[in-house]
Computed example of a mutant assay.
Amino acid sequence: MAIGQEVCFVAVCDLCGTSETSAGYTPHGSTEQAVIDIVTEKWGDPSCGWTHTPDGRLVCDTEDDEAHRTVHEEAGKTISSCAMTVTFT
């Protein structure tokens, strides 16, 4: 029986320490950037998903925390559990 070890990266929120598991699995990739690319777009939409801040923090899409909402709003994202979101200006 052959056994090999694989090394991969998973995203971990810099605010709460959680990892993405909403689709029933944890997104992973062979590089840090690959995982950042996966979690910062939800359903292929860069206005949804996690936020990668200019200072390098990675923040999950938790909806019920002010610190998370603030980071996302500063990045121009609206985090919502609803598939349709309306933003009034």
Rank of each mutant, 00 (worst) to 15 (best):
V35I: 03
V35G: 01
V35K: 00
V35A: 02
V35C: 06
I36P: 00
I36H: 01
I36C: 03
I36L: 09
D37F: 12
D37L: 04
I38H: 08
I38D: 13
V39G: 05
V39M: 06
V39D: 04
V39P: 05
V39L: 05
V39A: 05
V39E: 08
T40M: 05
T40Q: 01
T40W: 05
T40D: 09
T40L: 03
T40G: 08
T40F: 06
T40K: 02
T40I: 08
E41P: 01
E41C: 13
E41W: 07
E41F: 09
E41L: 10
K42Q: 10
K42T: 03
W43P: 00
W43M: 07
W43L: 04
G44L: 06
G44A: 12
G44Q: 04
G44D: 05
D45Y: 06
D45A: 11
P46L: 08
P46N: 14
P46V: 06
P46G: 06
S47K: 07
S47H: 06
C48P: 00
C48L: 13
G49P: 01
W50R: 00
W50L: 00
T51G: 02
H52F: 15
H52G: 01
H52K: 13
H52V: 03
T53I: 07
T53D: 08
T53R: 04
T53W: 07
T53F: 12
T53V: 10
P54A: 11
P54I: 07
D55Q: 13
D55R: 09
G56I: 09
R57A: 13
R57Y: 07
R57K: 14
L58R: 01
L58Q: 04
V59A: 03
V59F: 05
C60M: 07
C60R: 05
D61C: 06
D61G: 12
T62I: 06
T62K: 08
T62G: 08
E63W: 09
D64W: 13
D65E: 14
E66W: 02
E66D: 14
E66H: 08
E66A: 15
H68E: 08
H68V: 06
H68D: 02
R69N: 11
R69A: 12
T70N: 10
T70K: 12
T70C: 03
T70E: 14
V71E: 13
V71H: 08
H72G: 03
E73S: 13
E73Y: 04
E74H: 12
E74C: 05
E74A: 15
G76S: 07
G76M: 09
G76V: 01
G76Y: 11
K77Q: 14
T78D: 08
T78S: 13
T78P: 00
I79L: 10
I79R: 02
I79K: 00
I79V: 15
S80W: 10
S80K: 02
S81N: 13
S81C: 15
S81G: 15
C82A: 15
C82K: 12
C82T: 11
A83S: 14
A83R: 12
A83I: 01
A83M: 07
A83T: 09
A83P: 03
M84I: 10
M84L: 11
T85H: 10
T85C: 14
T85M: 06
V86D: 13
V86E: 13
T87V: 14
F88L: 11
F88V: 12
